[in-house]
Design a protein around this nucleic acid. Structure first.
Lengths: 199, 199
DNA sequence: TGACTGACCAGATTACTAGTTTGGTCAGTT
DNA sequence: AACTGACCAAACTAGTAATCTGGTCAGTCA
């Protein structure tokens, strides 16, 4: 785990400290002094490495996101058709966001933990990076022949992101535990094969 | 327009009055006394026809929703394939919600205008009814042969609702005016034909 | 008699204020 | 030169007094 790994460079120490505080108390209830203390340093030193509190937060999110995108890329690189990969990606996303309160709360905009503006910025960043993974997936799929040649990767990735995100959100908020799985089946089916009967 | 039509029965008068106030000032800033005054009646009379303020609001939403569902059903009844109908429905929804602040704000949960609980209830109702239209569309499509026979209408309608709603939301919040149209093209294409190349 | 009303009330909301906290700076220390 | 923590204005919080409002109901009309 990153939090237990001893960070040598000051910036890394601060980031780790910030991450544990943000995770425990959220953005609003964590002060710069908290972070400094957690990192066993002085408050002013934080500003040697970061512009502002927002900047610290965004850096923490980025790091968390890096880890997620890593696993996402691995999942997407596994063999299978594009819909299967999409499904795996959505599943991973749901799992990850279900467990990672930091990403989750900024993406859901829980204003209690994260202020509106900061949450929006963080969410936008996440959106960008996940979209990039999707676009890559479509491009690779086309070259492999598992995605229709006339699909335009960039905008289709945007649409797939919104679709996938809607499913994740429903899955995470639903009381019914099995919903996510069955909806993923349907998503897989509909997005994979379409609604129309095969000619 | 309904608001200018002279309502004869007291309940109708109250509903019309409530609607104009809710539209102008939102749920929170409209008082029962406002509504009574607007309907040229006494405050207590409101409670002869409605249980509570929430009840009034839900009735207004229901009426507004009735009008929307009417046009939705017409749109869906027009000739075309299931994806085309889905597209038309999503387009209609975006248009309607773009113009109807009442439905819009409760579905978007703008806590400034509508309290959290009430908005959630109203949103749930809307979800139910739109889902019913979608389910019907799929069932009809199956019997017509324009939808794959192995599609299960109920859960598929649920998923399509989430998907469509995600696209509407993006379309309504996006700064780019043309986005909705191009995304609908993609939705039409992907949901209609699927991502996989035809065998 | 029964449809209707508005004075009334408890609980919620607001407006205001005084006191506290906190992001960010910078003169001074190590 | 790297670092620190006292310091400050601006933002936030807690407390409270005053106001408002959903809902009731005893009484008034028609």
């Amino acid at each position: 785990m990153t939090s237990t790994m001893i960070e040598e460079n000051p910036r890394g120490r601060l980031l780790a400290a910030a991450e544990t505080r943000f995770r425990r108390f959220g953005y609003k209830r964590t002060t710069i002094e908290d972070i400094a203390t957690e990192a066993s340093t002085g408050k002013g030193s934080v500003y040697l490495h970061f512009e502002s509190k927002q900047d610290v937060y965004m850096a923490v999110v980025e790091r968390s996101l890096d880890r997620f995108i890593d696993s996402a890329e691995q999942v997407v690189a596994r063999p299978g058709t594009a819909p299967e990969r999409l499904r795996a990606l959505v599943e991973l996303t749901a799992d990850h966001y279900g467990h990672d309160e930091l990403l989750h709360s900024s993406l859901f905009g829980e204003t209690d933990l994260v202020g509106g503006d900061v949450a929006r910025m963080a969410a936008e960043r996440q959106r960008q990076r996940i979209r990039a993974v999707l676009e890559d997936m479509l491009t690779v799929g086309k070259s492999e022949g598992s995605v229709r040649a006339d699909i335009d990767p960039a905008p289709t990735a945007a649409v797939l992101f919104e679709i996938g995100w809607a499913i994740v959100r429903s899955g995470l908020t639903a009381t019914d535990t099995g919903q996510l799985e069955s909806w993923l089946d349907i998503l897989n089916d509909v997005v994979g094969l379409g609604l129309l009967p095969r000619a």
